[in-house]
Design a protein around this nucleic acid. Structure first.
Lengths: 116, 116
DNA sequence: CGTCAACATTCATGGACGTGTATATACATA
DNA sequence: TATGTATATACACGTCCATGAATGTTGACG
């Protein structure tokens, strides 16, 4: 997590890797198939993504399965939250109180419906 | 808006400018006072931010007042929303319904409390 | 142990980019 | 018009970085 979140996401190839991992963990070769650069480049991008906290590795045999980690996305979400006042009608102290109550509500949702 | 949102935000100086504009519109010299680079650099960053849709200009006499625009932040918010499932317990159709109800609520808040 | 597959790392290179210096443009005011 | 202030642009320079090619490393399996 030493590197910057935005700088890590600035590269389009890294974003393609991240988006490919949205569906679940993938091996390096699977990512090479989706991103049109060399395998060495994919490994380097994965290293950068790992140092930035975006991905984690899990060795499985001779393969290494990469998957996403939530922390940097949460950080990004927190950052953009500071600018929601630009397009939401009211995000003053009253609106923030509402927001806090919503967070508390969605953090402990009542299981009133079935998962599909 | 031709340039990439993440690439625009990758530069720390540009983020400082954006954060300085959170309080409202500012002239270029006001930003130069907050960012420790030359005035020419600030103007260049403002041009990049303008081309990316982050800021808009309003001439006032010999000054030019820059202010934030919501679109790129909304775009960023929409992007990170695609990854909320990583840390929220459930963001399936049920959770999205909750989310939609919250949005409808905060869009028309009843003035039932005083701001702290 | 030898071999193959999967992946990581090193090295060299070209291009993009942020910065400072200097100069240009626009506006206001006397 | 002349002068000063506010901002934008042109140019040159150094640095960072994404990429490909080549090589190194690790694990599975005969």
């Amino acid at each position: 997590m030493n590197v910057d979140v935005f700088q890590t996401l600035a590269d389009p190839t890294r974003r393609r890797i991240v988006e490919a991992l949205k569906g679940g963990e993938l091996a390096v070769n699977d990512l090479v198939a989706q991103v049109d650069i060399q395998q060495s480049g994919v490994s380097r991008h994965l290293r950068i993504l790992e140092e930035a906290g975006f991905v984690q590795v899990r060795p499985e045999g001779t393969k290494r399965l990469y998957s996403l980690r939530p922390e940097p996305f949460q950080e990004l979400d927190a950052w953009v939250t500071g600018y929601r006042g630009l397009w939401e009608a009211r995000l003053d102290r009253f609106g923030q109180a509402l927001e806090r109550r919503r967070k508390a509500r969605t953090a402990h949702p009542k299981p009133e419906e079935e998962p599909p």
